[in-house]
Design a protein around this nucleic acid. Structure first.
Length: 584
RNA sequence: CGGGGCGUGGCGCAGCCUGGCUAGCGCGCUUGACUGGGGGUCAAGAGGUCGCAGGUUCAAAUCCUGUCGCCCCGACCA
C-alpha cells in the first residue's frame, strides 16, 4: 500500500479524553476513531491489525477442529426468554421493537450466542453419532455497558470470537475444553502477548471448569493473584489462600466494653472515629443461605467471598440479608452487627481465629464493642476460607507470598454443562436410544482486546511496538526525498519486489520531511523500517531498522528484497520483538 | 446509579472568576519559495452558530437556569 493512497490520520497531540496508552496510541496512530462513547470506527490501519488477530484465531480454531459458522447479531427476544437470560442480562441486553406487517417484532442484539447456537444444535443434531462438534464464529457483540471506558477495552459493540462445544459425555466435554484451552495458548503465543491462564470462578459446575486468559497490565480492570514461585494464578473470586499466619496474639485480653459510635456504620467510619486500623475490626455480615440467616465474619480489611461462603455452607442460594432480616436477627440497624450474643450460625474466616481484643458491632444502634475475644465473648460455628485473596497472601500450592496483578481479560473458557441445552431442548439419543441433554462448553476471545492489551504492554515513548504477527504492515519503505528520482525509483522497485514476495509492505511515498516519516513510522509501530536515502544510495546501501532495536544496520541495495524477506521470515519463525519489555 | 471534570476552527489549548473593540495561540490544512536523515524556514491564505435552549443585561464565550454530549473515580459486569 502506498501511504499517499490510504488513510492514516496520525496525530501529534493526544486527543482530550484518552488516558491509557492503548487508547491514546490507537487514536494517535490513526487506527481508530470514536463515534460515540463505547463505539469506534476502525480506520484502515486498525482494521488491518484486527484482521491479523482474527486470522490467527481462525487458523488455530480450525487446527483444533472447530468449525466456523456465522450467526446473526439480530435475534428474537423469545430465545432469551426461553433461557431466562432477559432478566439475567437486564439493561445490558439491547432490545427494541420494530414494526413488521403491523405487528411489533421484539428483538435483541446478541450480547453472546449460547441461545442461538444451542437452538441450531437442537434443530439439527439428534444423535450421538453427530457429536462431538465445536462451532465458532467471529461476530460483533452488543452490550449496553453501564460505563464504556478505556477506549477499545470496554465498549458497547465489540468483536468476539465465540466457540461452543457440544459433547455426549463429560469426558468428551473435558477433551473439547482442553483442545480449546490449548488453542487459546497457541493463539496468544502467536500474537506475542504475555498472558496468564488463571483459574476462574466456575459457578455451579465446580471443579476445574473455567479459566480466564489474563494479560497483566497496569490499566486492567480485573485483578488476579499470581505466585511468582510456582506459577499458580487465579482471579480474586476463585483464588484459594495458602497457610495463614497462625501466630496467636500475645496481647493481654482486655475487658469487653461498649463504646458509643454514633452513625459509624461502615468499617471506614469506625476506624476514623476510633482512630484504629481496620485490621482490629471484625466485619460481621448477615447472609441468607437458602433462606436461613447466617453470620459471616472476616477481618475488617478483608472482603467476603460469596462463592466461597456458598460452597462452605453448602447452600444453593446465598444472598446478602435484607435490612429487615438483619434487624430481626441482630436487633440493630444495618451496620452494627457483631458476633457477641448472636443466636444464628456463625461462619468465620480463618484469619479471625488469631484476632484478639477486636472491635465489633454491638448489635445495638450506634454502638460497638471493644476488647472482644474469641471463646470468652463469642464462639464460631465453623472456620473456613471465606474471603477474597489479597496481595501477600500465601500461595495455596507452594506457600510463597502471592502478588496481586491488574489484568485485562482477553479470553475465557468455560464448561457450561447442560444449562442451555436443557432450556432450549438440545437433546440427542445415545446408542441405547436414551435421550440426554447435550453437554456444552463455551469459549470466548475479545479480538479488540488482543490489540489493546498488546499495545498496553508493548509501547515506548515514540509509539506502538507491534510484533510482526499483529502489525498492520510488516515493513515500511521510506524514501526520504521523493522529489529525488533516483531515491523514489529505488524505493518503488523495492516496494514492488517485497509486495510480490508476499510481504505486507507500506511505501511512505508522501512528500514529507524525513523527521515526519520517522515519527509516523515509530508511532504506528511498523516492525521493520527500510530507509532509502541519498546517503546510503551513494554507497549502494539501504538502512534497515527493527522498531524495537536502538540501532539500524545497512544492507546492500543489490538483492535487498531477498535480504528483507529473509529477515522477516526469520523474525516470523522466531520472534525477537521485545514484547512487554519495550514498555516505557 | 453516586462523586468529580470538560465542551471555544480538523486536533490541542488560552480567554470565563471580575460581561465591553474585529474571539486569540500552537499544531494541522491551502498556495508559493527555499529546504531535504528525527515533526524545517519564510510569505500569503482558508477555516469558528464559543455544545444546545431559555433567561438576566444597553451589551453574554464570560453571569443564571435547564438540557445534551464526552472523560475520569467508585458501584455493576453471562
Amino acid at each position: 500500500m502506498r501511504y499517499s493512497q490510504t488513510l492514516i490520520p496520525t496525530m501529534k497531540e493526544t486527543p482530550e479524553g484518552a488516558e491509557i496508552p492503548s487508547h491514546v496510541l490507537m487514536l494517535r496512530a490513526g487506527m481508530i476513531s470514536q463515534v460515540m462513547a463505547g463505539a469506534y470506527s476502525y480506520l484502515p490501519l486498525g482494521w488491518r491489525s484486527l484482521r491479523k488477530a482474527e486470522a490467527i484465531i481462525r487458523e488455530e480454531m480450525d487446527r483444533a477442529g472447530a468449525v466456523e459458522l456465522h450467526m446473526p447479531a439480530l435475534t428474537p427476544i423469545s430465545l432469551w426468554q426461553r433461557s431466562g437470560r432477559v432478566d439475567a442480562f437486564g439493561d445490558v441486553l439491547i432490545q427494541f421493537k420494530v414494526r413488521r406487517r403491523n405487528q411489533d417484532a421484539h428483538l435483541a442484539l446478541g450480547p453472546t450466542h449460547e441461545e442461538i447456537v444451542t437452538d441450531i444444535v437442537a434443530r439439527y443434531v439428534n444423535s450421538y453419532r453427530q457429536l462431538p462438534i465445536t462451532l465458532y464464529q467471529v461476530q460483533t457483540k452488543f452490550r449496553n455497558e453501564e460505563r464504556p471506558r478505556f477506549g477499545v477495552l470496554r465498549t458497547s459493540e465489540f468483536l468476539m470470537k465465540d466457540a461452543y462445544s457440544f459433547d455426549a459425555s463429560v469426558e468428551g466435554l473435558n477433551a473439547s475444553y482442553q483442545r480449546m484451552y490449548d488453542a487459546y495458548c497457541r493463539i496468544f503465543d502467536r500474537c506475542g502477548i504475555e498472558y496468564l491462564p488463571v483459574e476462574a470462578e466456575s459457578g455451579p459446575i465446580g471443579g476445574d471448569a473455567s479459566h480466564e486468559f489474563m494479560v497483566p497490565a497496569e490499566n486492567g480492570e480485573d485483578s488476579v493473584v499470581h505466585c511468582g514461585a510456582c506459577g499458580y494464578a487465579a482471579n480474586l473470586e476463585r483464588a484459594e489462600i495458602g497457610p495463614r499466619d497462625t501466630t496467636a496474639s500475645t496481647a493481654e485480653p482486655k475487658p469487653l466494653a461498649p463504646l458509643d459510635t454514633p452513625g459509624a456504620s461502615t468499617i471506614e467510619q469506625v476506624t476514623k472515629l476510633l482512630k484504629c486500623k481496620s485490621t482490629k475490626l471484625i466485619k460481621t455480615i448477615i447472609y441468607t443461605a437458602d433462606d436461613e440467616p447466617i453470620a459471616v465474619l472476616v477481618r475488617g480489611d478483608h472482603e467476603v467471598n460469596e462463592a466461597k461462603v456458598r460452597r462452605a455452607v453448602g447452600a444453593a442460594r446465598l444472598a446478602l440479608a435484607e435490612p429487615d432480616v438483619i434487624e430481626k436477627v441482630t436487633g440493630a440497624p444495618v451496620g452494627f452487627a457483631g458476633p457477641v450474643g448472636l443466636s444464628i450460625p456463625i461462619w468465620a474466616d480463618e484469619d479471625v481465629r488469631v484476632m484478639s481484643n477486636a472491635i465489633v458491632g454491638a448489635n445495638k444502634a450506634d454502638t460497638h464493642l471493644v476488647g472482644v475475644n474469641l471463646e470468652r465473648d463469642f464462639s464460631v460455628t465453623t472456620f473456613a476460607d471465606l474471603r477474597n485473596a489479597d496481595a501477600d497472601d500465601a500461595c495455596p500450592r507452594c506457600g510463597k507470598a502471592m502478588k496481586l496483578r491488574k489484568s485485562i481479560e482477553v479470553g475465557h473458557v468455560f464448561k457450561l454443562g447442560t444449562k442451555y441445552s436443557e432450556a432450549l431442548d438440545a437433546r440427542f439419543l445415545d446408542d441405547q436410544e436414551k435421550q440426554h441433554a447435550v453437554i456444552m462448553g463455551c469459549y470466548g476471545i475479545g479480538v479488540n482486546r488482543i490489540l489493546a492489551s498488546l499495545i498496553e504492554t508493548c509501547h515506548d515513548e515514540n509509539g506502538i511496538v507491534w510484533p510482526l504477527a499483529l502489525a498492520p504492515y510488516e515493513v515500511v519503505v521510506s524514501p526520504l526525498n521523493v522529489s529525488d528520482q533516483e531515491t523514489l525509483a529505488a524505493a518503488e522497485s523495492l516496494y514492488d519486489e517485497l509486495a510480490a514476495a508476499g510481504v505486507d509492505v507500506l511505501l511512505d511515498d508522501r512528500d514529507q520531511r524525513p523527521g515526519v516519516k520517522f515519527k509516523d513510522a515509530d508511532l504506528i509501530g511498523i516492525p521493520l523500517r527500510i530507509v532509502v536515502g541519498g546517503r546510503g544510495l551513494k554507497n549502494g546501501e539501504l538502512e534497515c531498522k527493527w522498531r524495537w532495536k536502538a540501532d539500524a544496520e545497512m544492507i546492500p541495495l543489490a538483492g535487498a528484497a531477498e535480504t528483507i524477506v529473509g529477515l522477516v521470515n526469520a523474525e516470523k519463525a522466531n520472534p525477537t520483538a521485545l514484547g512487554p519489555r519495550a514498555k516505557s
